[in-house]
Computed example of a mutant assay.
Amino acid sequence: MDNCSIHKGKEIEKLIEAVGAKLIYLPPYFLIFHQLKIVGQRSRTFYVLLVLGVIQI
């Protein structure tokens, strides 16, 4: 699970463990997710420029 503060509450941990799942937090910097974030940002930028007519295909 990511390190978002709402995911770290004791109530959430109890609910997850109650169904037999094991809770594992990701390290603060997880390379794969960082790369996906960069690709997503570039895709959004490309889409906005395309919609605004700044670039054409």
Rank of each mutant, 00 (worst) to 15 (best):
L15T: 03
L26I: 04
V51P: 03
V48C: 05
F33W: 05
I12N: 09
K10V: 01
E13A: 09
Y25H: 03
Q41W: 14
Y47F: 12
Y47A: 09
K22M: 00
Y25K: 01
I57Q: 05
I55Y: 10
F33L: 04
G40Q: 00
E13M: 06
E11W: 00
F30M: 01
L26C: 08
L31A: 14
A21E: 01
I38F: 07
G40N: 08
P28G: 04
Y25A: 02
K10G: 01
P28Y: 04
Q41D: 14
I32G: 00
A21W: 10
E13C: 02
I16V: 15
L49G: 02
A21F: 09
K10Q: 07
H34V: 08
V54M: 06
D2R: 04
H7N: 14
H34D: 10
L50I: 05
P28H: 01
K8F: 03
L36M: 14
V51E: 14
K8N: 05
G20K: 11
L36S: 13
G53V: 08
E17P: 01
L50K: 15
N3Y: 04
L49E: 08
P28A: 02
G40S: 06
D2S: 07
Y25E: 01
F30S: 13
H7T: 03
H7Q: 08
I6K: 05
L50A: 10
L50P: 00
R42C: 08
K8E: 02
I57F: 12
V39G: 00
S5H: 04
F33A: 01
L49M: 15
V19C: 10
Q41C: 10
Y29R: 08
I16L: 14
F33G: 02
L31D: 02
G20Q: 08
I57K: 12
I32M: 02
L50D: 10
E11Q: 11
I6Y: 13
A18N: 13
L36P: 00
G53W: 10
M1C: 08
Y29G: 02
T45F: 09
I24S: 10
P28C: 00
T45S: 12
Q56V: 13
K22N: 03
E13W: 04
V39L: 13
Y29P: 02
D2C: 03
K37H: 01
F46D: 02
F46M: 08
F30A: 11
Y47R: 13
L15S: 09
I12V: 15
L49N: 15
T45V: 02
L36E: 12
F46V: 09
I38E: 13
I12A: 13
S5Y: 02
F30I: 01
K22H: 04
T45K: 10
K10C: 03
Q41L: 13
D2F: 03
I12L: 15
Q56S: 14
M1T: 04
I16T: 11
L15A: 10
E13T: 01
A21R: 07
K14F: 03
I12R: 12
V51G: 02
V19Q: 14
K8P: 03
L36A: 15
T45G: 00
D2H: 03
V51C: 12
F33M: 03
K22F: 02
I6A: 12
H7R: 06
L31E: 05
G53S: 12
L52T: 10
T45N: 07
P28F: 04
G9W: 04
E17G: 01
G53A: 11
K37E: 14
S43Q: 05
